[in-house]
Design a protein around this nucleic acid. Structure first.
Lengths: 141, 141
DNA sequence: ATACTTGCAAAAGATTTGCCGCATG
DNA sequence: CATGCGGCAAATCTTTTGCAAGTAT
């Protein structure tokens, strides 16, 4: 059983055949597709229909939303207009997006995180969430 | 003449009556509406039609896009689905969004900026752009 | 039985575009 | 005159939803 199914069980999210397939595809996106990708709904639908071509795109939308509300997957609104998803990571990370290739590199920087907390506090706020996206071009060596 | 009109002239963007009104409304958003707001297209249209009720929402869309492509205004995709705009600031800043009130606080943190550059470089990238949004709740004292 | 799921198609919300008359250089 | 601009409505794109039928508990 993949990690997403595990979490569904844990959170009491019912696992139907369709949801299992979507869970599998999202889990696979780490292993199968080179650099871990962050597929949008269209891409997910394409992949799940390779397993079962009866699954409608509405179900994919409903399922990612359900998973997101249960904290099982994360939604990102990178530039481009379509929401993109990834399995919720064990520990938070941010993203650097290659503006030429679209490739996404994940990174963690504890110092930045700490500074964010401090900035929020200084402004009189408790930090609840944050979004950090870096956009860059590859340096040729 | 307001700052947006100035920039249009500088960049050779033709100033029609409609564009002047939109430029004025965007410039005013700093002064007139309490905390500087970052209005979406609907809100802009509402304000613009108070001056000239013939202006269509398509024109507002076309104009903010034009202004954005000329670097005169900045577009933000905060949570909420609709793009929001602000006059391009003289110096870059990031945003803290109050998740209860929707209020937006602008801030600059040079240390965070520096770290972002370093992170990108370490990953083999030249930083071209970035987006940092903090979401928080007000601390009561 | 009862409540939840799904597929389909229609609806909704944000944004863009084609067309055609109008304005501006 | 020639090119660009704006208004309107229709089109597009992503996402959501109503409904009726199917599935799981």
């Amino acid at each position: 059983m993949n990690a997403i199914e595990e979490k569904c069980k844990l959170k009491g999210v019912r696992l139907t055949d369709q949801r299992k397939i979507i869970a599998q595809v999202m889990s696979d996106s780490k292993q199968k597709y080179g650099t871990k990708d962050h597929p949008d709904v269209d891409e997910l639908h394409k992949r799940v229909t390779e397993v079962d071509d009866k699954i409608s795109i509405a179900t994919v939308y409903r399922t990612v939303k359900l998973f997101e509300e249960s904290g099982i997957v994360e939604k990102h609104d990178f530039k481009g207009g379509k929401a993109r998803y990834e399995q919720s990571p064990d520990e938070h990370h941010d993203h650097l997006i290659d503006i030429n290739s679209g490739e996404i590199i994940e990174f963690v920087d504890k110092d930045i995180e700490k500074l964010q907390d401090q900035v929020a506090k200084k402004l009189g706020y408790k930090l609840v969430d944050h979004k950090l996206e870096l956009y860059g071009t590859k340096i040729k060596k």
